[in-house]
Each structure stands twice: as C-alpha cells, then as structure tokens.
Amino acid sequence: MIEFQNADVTYPGGFKALSNVSLTIEQGELVVIVGLSGAGKSTLLRAINGFVPITAGSVRVNGTEVRGAHEATLRELRSGIGMIFQTFNLVHRTTVLNNVLMGRLAKVPRWRSMLGLWPAADKEIAIQSLERVEIVEKTYIRASNLSGGQQQRVGIARALAQQPQVLLADEPVASLDPVTSHTVMRDLRRINRDLGITTIINLHFLDLARSYGKRLIGLRDGELVYDGDIADVDDETFRGIYGRALTPDDLKEGAEL
C-alpha cells in the first residue's frame, strides 16, 4: 500500500513540482498517471522510491516512511520496487542476462554479486523473468543488439527479477512505436494481473490509458486534478488535466501516438 499525505516537492531551484498531493494506492492496483509534460508525473513516481525527496507531508510504502529515510532503509525499500524507464537504461555493452541479473543485486551476498558469481537459483529467476516477457531467446545477446521494444521488455524483466511488490513505469512507451507500445502495455497489464504487483504507469496518452488502465490519476501543475475510474473520464476531466477540451482528433486512433 502506497500512501501520499499532503506531499510537497520543491526542487532546489524553487520550482514546485508537487503540491499537497494525497492519495492511497492499494496492493495489486493498476494505476495510470496522465498529465502534460512538467505536470509532475515523474516526480510523483520518483517520490515513491525516494529518488526525489519530498519536502513536506509524508509518503509511506507498505508502512515505511520514505521521507528522511536513511540510505540503508531506502536501499531496502528500492529493492522491493521495480522501475521501468523511458530510455530503458540498460547497459548496452553486456548481455541481456547480466542486465536482468542486476535486479537480483540486493538479494544475493555482496561478494557473489561483485565477482559476478550469481547463484543458480538467481539465474533461474532472471531467465524466468525473461520468459515472462517473451524474450528468453535473446538471453545471451548483447543489449545493444536489441530493438527498442525488446530493450524495454528486458527492462521489465530486470524489474521482475527483483520480485517486487510495486512496479513503477516512467513513460515506458514514449520511445516506442504504436504496435510495440501495445505489446509492452499488454505485458505490464499481464504482470499486474498474474502476479498481483501494484503497477503505476506514467503515460502521455489518454488513449493507451483507456485501453489498459483501471484507475486514472490526472496531474496538472503538480496538483492532483483527477483520481477515479478510467471509464468515468469525460470532457470536463480532460479539460482539467490538459487545459483544453477534448476534440475529435484526440480520440482518433493513433493520433495521440
């Protein structure tokens, strides 16, 4: 369970990225966050694993307070939260398997991971994660030889290898083509449904959010402007999130992609 209580984030420059956000996300939920660029979507996501320290209020993940937590507590917390990035963030010069094994980092003795002597059980978990995102045939290939969609699925496998309770996806499909976007979104939904992992996805596109999401959170200028069922989204909420009315063009399939 993730709880935000009157959380504020003010960056050192004085820019207020989140103001007075309060929300609760239950275990196993699939939540989609939408908003314009700079609305605070990434900040909200990164506040959950402590990448962005909140400046007021509180954020609790499974009862652990993130604000002001010690480095060791944060690392313990992060090892249970998988994260997927817009730019995939793989190490290109090593194999897919090594990239995924990185997800087991916090679970194996330090000397083993440092020497690269991963236990067989952890290798098995890594390969199973690759099987779950249907890319196991690329296990021993260098990550630089994969296409964007394949790299993102390796990114998902790396997060899965952590065996996390929470999955944070920061614009997972923003660098991908429409068809690959659907594959990746379908993978995320399947993971959420099959494994019961709380999944929080940042998206630019309402269209994809409609196809895959259940609960929608709308952000505008750092403030929570919508929190509810995705089916109930109407022109009024759209105007609230994006600052203008929904036009027929926005609903045209692929127009937003």
């Binding site: 990448f51 994260m83 290109h92 990185m102 997800g103 980092l105 790396r158």
Partner: peptide
C-alpha cells in the same frame, strides 16, 4: 550514460554497486 546508474540505484544498489554494475 547516466541511465544504467539510475537503474542500479532503483534496484537498491549503493555507490559500489553502481560502479560495479
């Protein structure tokens, strides 16, 4: 590229793990 460094941080690695992985 700073991306993988952030990724290692996100799986709970410290500074040494960031450098190593």
């Amino acid at each position: 590229d700073g991306g993988p460094v952030e990724a290692v941080g996100a799986v709970g690695g410290g500074q040494v793990a960031r450098i190593r992985f």
